[in-house]
Design a protein around this nucleic acid. Structure first.
Ligand SMILES: [Mn+2]
Ligand SMILES: [Mn+2]
Ligand SMILES: [Zn+2]
Ligand SMILES: [Zn+2]
Lengths: 138, 138
DNA sequence: GTCTAACTGAAAACGGTTATCATTTCGAAA
DNA sequence: TTTCGAAATGATAACCGTTTTCAGTTAGAC
């Protein structure tokens, strides 16, 4: 009886490394299509499907944060922190910064419970214009 | 010279009234497709395109609030208040309640400015399980 | 009643994402 | 080092909510 491998681990591939590298190199949230285009342009041939698959798994594993823009596109960013936190995203260039949110969690819990809701979670995104973009404007 | 009408006002139609009525009657956020199905089931023949058009205009006019669910579908709800506010949405049935957010605005402004961002806006949705759904569970 | 811009809705187009499936590749075990 | 099955890949097609198109209908000002 040939005891087969555990079957469940991730395998190291050129494409996976390239996708993680692209995410790590960017201070902004990026879409699957942007990453795909970037890899192709840089000579790293990779299927769009594969990019989607890796981003999805990275998100499931909690390695990247997912942001759904007001327009609907889903964007990903490699996060410095693995704690729960939120982002401030530049409306013009996409650059984002992270911030924690103790007061926010308290507020959400308090309000939700007072209205009879349990199992509370919250989604917060703050948008603005970053210093660079403001300078470039004028 | 026949002075033509102002050209810009909205016209009263059976379909428009039905859509507004459906929104007003619901305490939950509803999708365009849900509203369309409801109208058709109730004998109010209406094109899906028309539902989308009315919801879009109502949203532009600020008469309804727009919520993009984590899964991506866009949902609409007729709002009681025209002030800036946020929602607590039941993950199971969609029922929502409104809440204001003075502390939240302060938090967002403070954090954003400290990171160099201006023209700050924020999007917040709180999710939970409402009392009815919690009761129905067990 | 006339007239025109607003409105309607069936059908086709759109665009991002996911499913399919034949093929390739990784890597644990032999 | 060779083997071999699960994991990964990627071209293609399907999906699905939404938007566009366009020919026909209708509200409502005159
Ligand atoms: Mn983050
Ligand atoms: Mn509201
Ligand atoms: Zn910027
Ligand atoms: Zn509920």
């Amino acid at each position: 009886m040939t005891a087969r491998p555990p079957a469940g681990a991730h395998r190291a591939t050129r494409q996976g490394r390239a996708i993680v590298a692209a995410l790590r190199a960017s201070p902004s949230f990026r879409s699957a299509q942007e990453i795909h285009a970037e890899l192709c342009a840089g000579g790293q041939k990779t299927g769009l499907t594969t990019v989607y698959r890796h981003l999805q798994r990275l998100a499931d594993d909690g390695a990247v944060d997912v942001l759904r823009q007001p327009e609907g596109d889903v964007m990903y960013r490699y996060c410095a922190s693995d704690e729960h936190h939120h982002h401030i995203v530049c409306r013009e260039c996409g650059r984002s910064a992270e911030t924690d949110c103790p007061e926010l969690s308290d507020w959400a819990d308090r309000v939700a419970h007072s209205l009879g809701y349990s199992d509370v979670s919250h989604a917060v995104e703050v948008f603005g214009v970053c210093a660079d973009c403001r300078a470039a404007r004028r």
